[in-house]
Each structure stands twice: as structure tokens, then as C-alpha cells.
Design a binder for these strands. Structure first.
Lengths: 110, 110
DNA sequence: GCTTGACGCAACCGTTCAGTTGCAATACAT
DNA sequence: ATGTATTGCAACTGAACGGTTGCGTCAAGC
């Protein structure tokens, strides 16, 4: 296996999406717009530090981008590109499965 | 939010997709068609028991369905429904994000 | 009846992970 | 200068996870 970049990204994206707290963060970001760690800590039932860890993980996965704001705040905003890549991954899976099914069908009706 | 069933399924599907071995199993199933645990153990670098664990997890996630076959074999085949649900989840995320962006844009050009 | 192939169950090991607590550093306001 | 708010770093804990080994079980063929 050569270092497949798409696979690596899929890995990170799916692990990122696997955690409930992380999904909550993403949902908040998607509906409420860019926010900071402490603001999220007010809205979620976990500590700021826990949220900070999730934010770095999400940033490493390419899902988030941090931007410095006023005072010492850092605002995180969503990055749609990796999400689309994950969608393509799922589409490829479904596609392979579908073509296998139709091939079987035509073989049976042969 | 009450126990959202779609969220629960998304949880299981994304955790299932997060593991490389599990993705390998799904890819094998998608391209090669239904197989058994021992057959997969020949093709993957892990033990049959490890594969069996993954298979039960994938079955619990609704991604696989076991069907008894000849002798004592059990053949697992893919189930496309949860995959489509996961795709919808990602689409919803991207959609919310997109609408937020366009709303911001129209607000700025207002 | 005995062997062979396939599966299930249970215990165990090492690693990773989510979350917490505690503390240092830095920017701005008064 | 002192206080307040926000972030970053480090150590720790408890639980979950991936994987292995070992053993028991059950169906079919000789």
C-alpha cells in the first residue's frame, strides 16, 4: 500500500466524527458559526480543556481552522473540504456494492 | 434532544468506519461479495477472532447481515442503508455550514 | 466413531482515549 | 500595578479498544 492520502484523511475524519462531543462541537460550529473554546465550554457539559483537545484533533483532521481574534481569543471555523472527501469515500463503498449487486443480477438472469 | 435514532446510528457507523481493519473488511465485502470470517482471516493480517469481533460490531451497527451457509459457515453481506444515512449526516453538516456562509454573505452585502 | 473445518466464548495484555485538575503565561482594562 | 479573562501545557485516572491465546462446540465426511 502506498501512502494513500485519501485513506489517511478518511481515517482522521471518521475518527473525528466518531465522538459525540466532537459531533456536538461540529454541529454548534455549523449552525452557530465560528466560536472559541471557552464559549463552547459554556454550552457543552465538559471542561474547556477537554474541548481544547477536541479542537486540536479536529484541526489536525483538517475539519477546523483557527483564526486569532480580539484579545486573546481564538475563533475556530469549519472547513468543508474533508467532509466532502468522506462523502466520496462512502459513495465509493456504496457504488462498489451496487455494481457487485447488478453484476450478480445480470449473471443470474443470463 | 431526546434519544435521536439517526444520531445513534451515525455514532455506530462512524465508529465502525474509524478502524482501518474494519474499512478493509468493508472494502473486501464491497468488491468481493459476501464472505465468512475465516476467509477474511486469510486475506487480512489479523486473527480470525479479531475479525469476528469486527464482524459483530459491524453487524450491530447495521452495516452487515449474517446469513447461514453450507456446513457451519456464516456468510456476511453488506447493508447499504446505514451508509446512506451517514452520507445524509455529512450532507446536513455541509448544508448548515453553507447556509450560514451565504447568510453571512448576504448580510455583508446588505 | 473419529477427524476435520468453522464458529463462539472468555480471559488477558498493551495502548489509546476522553476527561479532569492544577498551574503558568499573556493580553487588556482599571 | 493589580485584576480579569483566555489560552496552553503537563500529569493523572479510568475506561474502552484492538488484538492474541486457549478452549469448547457443533456440523459434515471418511
Amino acid at each position: 500500500m502506498q501512502p494513500d492520502p485519501a485513506e489517511a484523511i478518511a481515517e482522521q475524519v471518521f475518527t473525528a466524527l466518531a465522538d459525540p462531543s466532537r459531533r456536538a462541537i461540529l454541529a454548534d460550529l455549523a449552525t452557530g458559526g465560528p466560536t472559541t473554546a471557552t464559549d463552547l465550554a459554556d454550552r457543552l457539559p465538559i471542561t474547556r480543556q477537554a474541548i481544547a483537545k477536541h479542537l486540536t484533533l479536529l484541526t489536525d483532521a483538517g475539519l477546523l481552522t483557527p483564526t486569532p481574534a480580539e484579545r486573546r481569543r481564538i475563533r475556530y471555523h469549519l472547513n468543508p473540504a474533508p467532509i466532502q472527501l468522506a462523502q466520496q469515500f462512502l459513495a465509493a463503498l456504496a457504488h462498489d456494492w451496487d455494481t457487485r449487486l447488478t453484476a450478480l443480477k445480470t449473471h443470474l438472469t443470463d
